[in-house]
Design a protein around this nucleic acid. Structure first.
Lengths: 145, 145
DNA sequence: CTCCTAATTGCAACTAGTTGCAATTAGGAG
DNA sequence: CTCCTAATTGCAACTAGTTGCAATTAGGAG
């Protein structure tokens, strides 16, 4: 278990939540996975270690971790959300609604908006990892002919 | 059936898709609904008019309309997507991941980013109706104490 | 109008995720 | 260490949405 992982667990407790073995297993599975991972895959990996862990506990833990912003949740339009630790440098995903091609961009794009929302609405936006839908260059061009 | 509605159907055909009675009913139900409406509610209203219409046809039609950008799809974090016609002035929703409070903002915020993404990546972002997650003023303040 | 074919629908089985509730338990008080 | 209580888990039933495939049909060609 990494120090990072332990810190997250402490974070959980600080927020008045209980630190159960089930939650610890779920969090460590996400920590041990590089990149994006689906709820179902998380359930599979959790069960590999602890076969009797109930699936509703896993889903509820994922909801909780997302709500506390301990993990990223991104909808890439595959019909299911993907989870990831907050550790990579901030970046965003441009997703083509036609061909589903995904392009990555760096985070600087949204910095000004983040400040604006904070100043104007007092809203602390989670803009460190964002899925933006639209049409990629190729599909936009084809659309017009 | 409004002129708007007919134009959308023609739009469908122009893109090489078929104009089936099922699709017409689904689209007219969304047209007739003010504001956001869930897939399930759409299915209910469709069935009120045409009880034997199959639910997979409805779900597939919704996917298609979203992909062609004829309707808006927004995830307000209720565990299901909400659909809406493109007719209101552009606006965005700030959703608090803790208390789920929703604040509306106008569209001007994202205009510069839309241009930047188009210029730099050739990506035509659908930023006319956006759900932004984060913490509202109140929850952000509580988090710090 | 008839024929043809690829797109679409309807169906039935399935899957991912949710819910309500009783049983269990983390963590705090004594 | 023991007791207590609210938070959490496990369970079983359920619900929303998806999938593969055979049957149907929109729209185009002749």
């Amino acid at each position: 278990m990494s120090h990072h992982h332990t810190a997250l667990l402490a974070n959980l407790r600080d927020q008045g939540r209980r630190l159960t073995p089930q939650r610890e297993i779920v969090l460590s599975v996400i920590c041990a996975s590089a990149g994006h991972i689906s709820a179902e895959e998380i359930l599979t990996r959790v069960r590999a270690r602890y076969p009797y862990l109930n699936k509703s506990a896993v889903y509820r833990t994922l909801d909780l971790l997302a709500q506390l912003n301990l993990v990223n949740v991104t909808d890439f339009g595959e019909g299911r959300a993907l989870y990831e630790m907050h550790r990579d440098p901030h970046h965003h995903h441009l997703i083509c609604r036609k061909c589903r091609k995904i392009t990555n961009t760096d985070a600087s794009i949204f910095e000004s908006i983040e400040k604006l929302l904070r100043a104007e609405y007092g809203f602390h936006a989670d803009l460190d990892h964002f899925a933006i839908w639209g049409l990629c260059r190729k599909c936009a061009r084809n659309r017009k002919t």
